[in-house]
Amino acid sequence: MYQVLKPSRSSTLPMRHLNYHVRHWGPDTSPLPTLVLLHGWMDVGASYQFTVDALQHERRIIAPDWRGFGLTTGAPVDHYVFADYLADLDLLLDHYAPGEAIDLVGHSMGGNVAMMYAGVRPERIRRLVNLEGFGLPATRPDQAPKRYAQWIDEIKQLHSGDMALKSYDSQEGVARRLMKTNPRLSEDKAQWLAGHWAQPNTQGQWEILGDPAHKITSAQLYRLDEAMALYKNITAPVLAVEASDDSLGQWWKGRYTLEEYHQRLTHVRNCRTAVVHDAAHMLHHDQPAQVARLIEEFLEQA
């Protein structure tokens, strides 16, 4: 089992009809800005443990479990709206870092939230690190009829039970699943992650701590013009980090490319890029020391 170097502690904040679980590392107060870590889709805040362990300097760090993930709980829902993550983050910062310009790191979906939030509340962000938060392919208005129909059909599938997540016989089974998804993930890290990514139910089956309703496609199309308006409104310096494996190309098969992503980043007034070598999409698992170094060097620059 992976040996944690910097143990975390938990808090729960009642907020927006939810009990929001937040993981904490470091002191309760620090002369450095609070560092907020946002996890990706079907992930949890604890996913950042390896990167936190690799950070050289002590500071206050918080990582929430997004609604419908991890240990954050609330009333059942049958779909999620992306804008809710922005409101959730705003209220979390009001509670944990009131009046403070924070340093923000987001991975994948969390990176997309971070970029959007920094455009909505630019005064709340001092510096931003986006780990493979690429956004989505551009859409056209004439795609709307099929998108709404798809959304309705998937709602029906969810309620019929067709979207249930697979369960596992043991923590080891969850770890094997994680290593199959990410061949670079070592067994000790996979075993540790499995204990935070899933938990046993009353029958002893290990269930993923993610709501199946997250699998439902958004009813709204991804509006590139809106996204670029948000990018233009970001005032914080941004470091956009990608892995050496082209996960974007693997996902979208030419429908959306790294070249297009880099073009979008030109709309951010102060943005630089970096690459983590020998890594895929879960770069903070594959190369936590590289990721930690990039984060600290960027946050500490004058």
Results as ranks from 00 to 15, higher is better:
L13I: 12
A46C: 08
L136S: 11
L104K: 08
L185A: 05
S170M: 03
D142F: 11
D65M: 07
L178Y: 03
S11R: 08
E58D: 13
L265C: 09
D78M: 08
N112W: 03
V238D: 02
T266S: 15
T72W: 00
A198Y: 05
L258P: 12
A227M: 14
V291I: 09
A289K: 15
L86R: 01
V174N: 00
K189G: 06
Y148C: 03
L230H: 12
V4P: 05
H285F: 10
P288L: 07
D84N: 13
T257F: 03
D94V: 10
R269W: 06
M282P: 15
V36D: 05
A46T: 08
V105R: 10
L258V: 13
Y96G: 00
D84Y: 06
S244W: 01
A149V: 07
V275N: 11
I61L: 01
M282E: 15
D88H: 00
R67S: 01
L224S: 09
H284D: 11
A118N: 00
P183L: 06
L104W: 02
S8I: 01
F82A: 12
Q287D: 09
R126Q: 08
H107A: 04
K232Q: 13
A213S: 11
P64D: 12
T202N: 11
L158N: 07
T51M: 14
L230S: 11
A75V: 01
